[in-house]
Amino acid sequence: MKFKAFLTENGVNLLEKRFLPALDKMGKICHLYLTRDHSIFLHNLLNGDGIQSVAQFRREALFDDYRISSQNEDRIAFAVDVSLLHRALRSSVSICTEFGNGPTANRLQIKLVKKLPSNSTQPMPFLTFETKGFKSAVIQDVPISKPLSRAQLLELQTALDAAQDLPPTLVQVPDLNQLQSFVDRMKHVGDLLDVSITKYGDLHMQISTTLITLGAEFRKLLVIGEQADAPADDRNLSAQARSSRAVLRGDAQSVQVSVKHFAKSLCYYLAKPDCAFYGIAPQGACLTVIFQFFIPGSRQMDKSISLHCRLPVLDPGSS
């Protein structure tokens, strides 16, 4: 089992400034799954009831001189502490820029190693960052879990495949920052959030407790997938009435999620996505958030990066 690669400048920027801070908010521990073509950061895919998150990079987006080999079709996966990874990368980068002379003179190598820790008799696996300075080399070892076994890896791949299904209707959130500040404030009022999404491009969210009902409705959003024209006589209704009528008509789906999960998914604004879409999976299985990234300086989707998460549904909802 071998893995060795050089991080590109773009890769360093993506990880250090954008993705690792965002992934750290999602959860302390994630799986890093490396294949011949992709590097994937996975949260909560194998265990549990939290938000499932998948951040996938094509090899060229992060690395060059990429070498991977394993007896399991050159696939390697292990668990790693995101904040440690971020810290190691940050300090390696600072050394690189401090002593670097020229863009290619100083490169950041990342590799998988087994070492004997100082107070242990058993060798442990590490992800090692190696930076060559002017007169010195700095090596940072980030401890990782034992690589996943063939069976575990199969399980991870199955879960990953299952997490790829697209909701039939997706609506684009207009302003991620605004939505985030709203949801952050909404958190104080209650724990459960009803989310409904219509084929007309309406996103309706509501917290309801015995003392208060607090909601927000965003209308006329861009729709991808199944869409329909909003009935004209809905215009003068309240937001609640509008969305429940749309659900009855079969033009909307509604699910209940945890406000905390919803707020957490919005932390992905740290990765600086160019747009975000919300959708409800068939049968109300989960609330899916898909983030898109553009090729810098264009409005064209950057297909080498993909990021999405799936919020567990607490109640199957009314659909």
């Binding site: 709203f182 607090l214 909601g215 927000a216 209308r219």
Partner: peptide
């Protein structure tokens, strides 16, 4: 705004 609205009912 017509296209985005927040509402609340407090008991």
């Amino acid at each position: 705004s017509l296209d985005a609205g927040i509402y609340a009912e407090i008991r």
